[in-house]
Amino acid sequence: MKPAPFAYAKARSVEDALRLLREHGEGARLLAGGQSLIATLNMRLSSPAILIDLNEIAALSGIALRDGDVVIGAMTRHAEVQQSDIVASHAPLVAAAMPHVGHAAIRNRGTIGGSIAFADPAAELPACLLALGGRVEIAGATGTRMVAADDYFRGLYETAVGADEVLTAIRLPAATPASRFGFLEFPRRHGDYAMAGLAATARADGASLKDVRLAYFGVGMTPVRARKAEAALAGGDVEAAVTALVSDLDPPDDIQASGAVKRHLAGVLLRRVTAQMDARIESAHDGGKA
């Protein structure tokens, strides 16, 4: 299908985008990479009066290491994040997730800010943000504010970003030598949305894992932390963690899989992702001996 008619404006700066949002009110939508938004326009699931295009705002693009954070501008394309040495070294969870985000042509165009702002519950990057305990930088009329990942996801496609605000950057705590991560998803086709997936982080303390954060995606209205399983895993008991998922997660049926299948996959994911994190502890120890 073809989109319903809409007007189009290029924002030259974040201030310009904020001004356009105020001017056009509810009928306005921000256009980032467009890899989800334009699909919904084509299907006429959405019919904004005007698109405010952020693609010309160079200041919103780029990756830097700043004050112990990996700071990624909202309009940074997935392909740039995938190829970034800073991300590979200091946010390896994101580097591991990136090949699973869409397909090559999608990654050339899609942006990290667009993905985090759209907040598809089955998407990889919102779950990575949550697993890393990152922060989201949001610009509004009164200035810029930071929102912690745990407070950011409010409901299905609902986030802390207000209708008159612009998501400007993602800040992820840079990995330390003790940082561990794991990532796995089960999609029907590589690059498609997962039936279920898991992004996890932890801090290695000797042979055990502390500060475990398990962010599941594709199993609810938002990316979901499995807090009882996190506690069980920090206690060293993987099977208890898998059992705890029963109360942590209540996945609804969706187009990808039934809730029962997702529940089963969540346990498989937990065992395999825990093994990824444990293997990294072992290899770190081996490295220490050598």
Partner: peptide, 13 residues
């Protein structure tokens, strides 16, 4: 220089 989806980009862009 890079491949994109022709259906997910607007001509005005």
């Amino acid at each position: 220089g890079t491949i994109v989806r022709g259906c997910l980009m607007l001509a005005v862009q």
